[in-house]
Write a protein that binds this DNA or RNA. Structure first.
Length: 382
RNA sequence: UCGACAGUAGCUCAAUGGUGGAGCAUUCGGCUGUUAACCGAAGGGUUACAGGUUCAAGUCCUGUCUGUCGAG
């Protein structure tokens, strides 16, 4: 498992679509793509144990540079020889740079060529992140895949603002790459670095961002700044255009997406990697994904419904517990409710991706998508 | 039996004599590179009952009922 074969395309769709299967090989695991990566911001997938992730053959999870930098701090991570050891997770980890967090939640930020000054959302302490610093922190974290510092603008943003922003982001990412190249790995970790394109939903700016970034030898390319409030069709169109421009021999990662429908639409358009808080967060809020659509487990209509939340799903939760019991756990604020729903949603997402991979491999993606959506959008159970 | 205190939304409580509110509960909704076991909205009232004073009463007065505490 060394860097020479980081990404291999296994099969391209035979259906005149851009969907494809592949393998990402890191020091820690072999990841079948298209893949959905559960989010574990602070070194934990909320409400889920490692052994439960193992049951779904989870090969990669996310961590977050911004959050881990603030807590537990790089001294603790350094003492533990990296995040893998610290959290005892021996599969792959991808860390987001924290750019998204700084721009979405930290306040009083001052941005300039050098980087960004921000205040911690925890205690108001001031910090400065430069492109180099973000790489240094991720070297200590030891994530298998690192992300560069980028500026993620809100939607909508004026074109002139976006134009300036992508120029800055590209400069930052070049510096990230140089620093990554010139600095040694820590604790024996072999790490990769992706790019992140921006450009909001302006096709020409997205194109410019991508064209500048693919000139640099990043190990993969992410699409950022989408799914932030724009119409779904706009997002799909931008993804479609982006994957036409991105190199075929490197993984393409659509950041922060999405719903089961988004996953299908974007796999079809050539995306290999996804992450999203939706399955885990919604689970903790009592909303679960099923074969026949999403349901709110707190609904009074489930009070006396002793059926499985999803007869056609094989997660531990749907095979062993009823709607009425899950509702009871939520109404009673029992932690088990969040745990069981998280297991279910993550299982549902990873199961969906597994089926998607099989369908692509068999040349039946379109048929699979049609059948899935027919059930999912029917809301038979709702 | 006497005395004190109290009775306001399902519950716990607000409301200088001047448009009866909150939290919780209930119902519904939201969540897209996690500040999120979170956030939002809605429904819900003859202010125990009956009189009285007043331009105006949840609020002041009288009586009744109910409850808590104390005394006997």
């Amino acid at each position: 498992m060394d860097g020479n074969n980081f990404f291999n395309v296994l099969s391209n769709s035979s259906e005149d679509i851009k969907a494809r299967t592949g393998l990402i090989t890191t020091q820690h695991s072999v990841i079948e793509t298209p893949v959905f990566m559960p989010v574990g911001t602070l070194g934990a997938v909320k409400a889920m144990e490692h052994r439960e992730l193992d049951e779904f053959n989870t090969e990669i999870i996310l961590g977050n540079t911004y959050h881990l930098f603030l807590r537990p701090g790089t001294d603790v991570l350094e003492g533990a020889h990296g995040l893998h050891n610290f959290m005892n997770w021996n599969k792959s980890i991808l860390t987001d740079s924290g750019g998204f967090q700084i721009f979405s939640l930290a306040k009083l930020k001052n941005i300039n060529e050098d980087g960004v000054e921000f205040t911690s959302h925890l205690n108001g302490d001031k910090y400065f992140f430069s492109p180099e610093k973000v790489i240094d922190i991720q070297r200590i974290i030891g994530s298998d895949i690192m992300m560069p510092l980028d500026e993620c603008l809100p939607y909508p943003s004026e074109k002139s603002v976006v134009k300036k922003s992508i120029a800055l982001t590209t400069k930052w990412e070049k510096r990230c790459f140089e620093h990554f190249r010139n600095n040694l790995q820590r604790f024996g970790n072999k790490q990769k670095l992706f790019s992140i394109s921006q450009g909001s939903t302006y096709p020409d700016l997205r194109k410019k961002s991508i064209e500048d970034l693919i000139e640099i030898d990043f190990d993969g390319h992410a699409i950022g700044g989408l799914a932030v409030g724009e119409e779904n069709t706009l997002m799909y169109d931008n993804v479609d255009m982006a994957t036409d421009l991105l190199p075929k021999d490197k993984p393409r990662y659509l950041m922060g997406v999405g719903t089961p429908v988004d996953l299908l639409e974007c796999v079809e358009r050539g995306i290999d990697m996804f992450d999203c808080v939706m399955p885990t967060r919604n689970a903790r809020h009592g909303r679960i994904f099923t074969t026949y659509g999403e349901i709110n487990i707190r609904g009074a209509k489930y009070r006396n419904n002793y059926n499985s939340p999803d007869e056609e799903c094989s997660t531990y939760t749907s095979m062993n517990f009823s709607l009425a019991y899950l509702r009871h756990l939520f109404i009673s604020k029992e932690i088990l409710g969040m745990q069981l729903c998280t297991i279910h949603n993550v299982g549902f997402y990873l199961g969906l991706m597994k089926n998607i991979r099989s369908a692509i491999h068999e040349g039946k993606f379109k048929e699979f998508k049609k059948n899935f959506l027919q059930k999912y959008l029917s809301k038979k159970m709702i």
